[in-house]
Design a protein around this nucleic acid. Structure first.
Lengths: 98, 98
DNA sequence: AAAGTATTTAGACATTTGCCTAAATATATA
DNA sequence: TATATATTTAGGCAAATGTCTAAATACTTT
């Protein structure tokens, strides 16, 4: 959960997600869309993979990345949940201190 | 957009959101739920306010914070959008370099 | 007006993050 | 097998982030 939100908190990583939404790409193709170095992109891809946002499949010399859209459900559920006001429980009522 | 995702990327701030989901609270009440200092909580609240996630209203000696749930729509829209595979445009097809 | 309470601001510090270059690894091709 | 290509790993560095204590601000109460 935290890895997931962390993964989404960087603009470059969100752009990578938007790219992969259109089609699967290998690391080099992805890097071509950015002006930062390939190792930096590789690092971002690693974080996205750790957060389960993308899956990577080695295809010969290339590594193809694709979105794992299922994790987004988790985010949507959490966020939508916050939009809904919760009924206050007795035990949640905090006394003013002193 | 970036401020919003940044705001959601910290566990303490997400917990604050979950607290405010139940009821509005003033800064001191919120701080009571955590073991970190009041100035730190105040800082988190400031970031949440900058991201438009909460609104603060001064009520005498207290400052009441409440959720501004409308911003969550933005997140849900973006995330849901990524879950939906996009039709590939001609112009989006990137030639393999060389 | 003085003292107490609620909250923020200021400034310092350690950790994390995002970036870089150089080197390592793995596969493909001449 | 030697060379070229694709990608990652390693290590370093600057900026951003999260935390703290001390001090400032603002309101309330005596």
């Amino acid at each position: 959960m935290n890895l997931l939100f962390k993964a989404l908190s960087d603009p470059t990583r969100r752009q990578i997600i938007e790219l992969l939404r259109k089609r699967d790409m290998n690391a080099g193709e992805i890097a071509d869309y950015f002006s930062i170095s390939k190792p930096s992109i590789s690092h971002h891809l690693d974080l996205l993979r750790q957060a389960n946002v993308v899956i990577s499949i080695k295809e010969g010399q290339f590594i193809t990345y694709s979105l794992n859209t299922t994790v987004f459900d988790e985010v949507v559920t959490w966020v939508l949940d916050q939009s809904q006001r919760k009924k206050t429980n007795k035990k949640d009522i905090k006394q003013k201190s002193k």
